[in-house]
Design a protein around this nucleic acid. Structure first.
Lengths: 173, 173
DNA sequence: ACCTGAACACCGTTCAAGT
DNA sequence: ACCTGAACACCGTTCAAGT
């Protein structure tokens, strides 16, 4: 079976979840795929782009409710982001990298920005909200690993409270 | 003049501001100081700790008003964080690393947490607020570099608006 | 106590050459 | 078109040995 971007991303994802971001190197990825390191660069521009693709993948299943009220849409998005990312190791870091590097390539962020725009809320609220979700998720993950427990698969009440607090702040502005 | 942790941090800071985080390697730092790479490890545990110290340094000048109202204290903190970090390349990343690694060693965060506690605001509000500031500052810096201009030394109105929106969200909870 | 030399086990990326 | 081999220019960290 020949190499492909999809196959590379599959393996990258496995490597991330099983060994963590520090072990997700181009060389390690290549050896896992049993190809020479240089082969990867025929399918991916560089490591940063690979991580951006990975972030898009992690957020891809999220469905953004286009018809709901602004508050409801944001709540739903926050809920889905949590469910999608909480179980994936270092997911927050990976998404943060993608936001910093290629925000326009993240569908979720585009949808969030449109919603903010429609609701007359400052557009940067979208990024601020996403960043708030990411820091909370990261926090919950480190808490979970330090206590030896698993991160809650459902968003904890404190997460929902925090995010809706941030959203409320913008909506009231 | 002998090597010392302070001297290492001075040079690390210069390297960061002049060449960026990617060029701030232990080896580069050592060569800049004209010592062998291994010498650094007599003064600093490892690179992560060095970066944590650097973050503490960047936030050290910030004075947290202990007697002011909660809203005023947060506004003042947000203002000072912006002024302190906006001019320093990749400062947000460095601080973020420190928050994730050793939050208890950051005086600012401790002060913020105490204020939140006193005001009956959820304690994680402190981190959420700091993260919001960081993402905004990072955003302003990338905007500045992409347009070829300098990042505003004073916090823009949109920054103050965004942070106070987040704070308001928590205070109203 | 403080530092060097040298090693260990890695990186990301490029590119001529092969199939 | 797709991949290998080999190189280039690096990393962080450790540790016996020297002063």
């Amino acid at each position: 079976m020949a190499l492909s971007r999809e196959k590379i991303l599959d393996t990258a994802f496995t490597l991330l979840t099983q060994y963590g971001l520090a072990d997700l190197s181009m060389r390690r990825l290549a050896s896992e795929l049993e190809v020479a390191p240089g082969a990867l660069y025929y399918h991916v521009k560089n490591k940063q782009e690979l991580l951006t693709h990975l972030a898009s993948r992690m957020l891809a299943p999220i469905e953004f409710p286009q018809d709901a009220s602004t508050a409801a849409a944001l709540t739903s998005a926050a809920d889905q982001v949590y469910r999608q990312l909480a179980g994936i190791r270092e997911s927050a870091e990976v998404v943060r990298l993608a936001v910093a590097l290629h925000p326009e390539r993240l569908e979720l962020l585009s949808a969030l920005t449109i919603t903010c725009h429609k609701a007359q809320v400052p557009q940067l609220a979208a990024k601020t909200l996403l960043h708030s979700m990411l820091s909370f998720i990261e926090e919950e993950q480190t808490r979970a690993t330090s206590t030896g427990t698993e991160a809650a698969t459902q968003p904890p009440a404190s997460y929902c409270d925090a995010i809706s607090a941030v959203a409320r702040g913008f909506l009231a502005a």
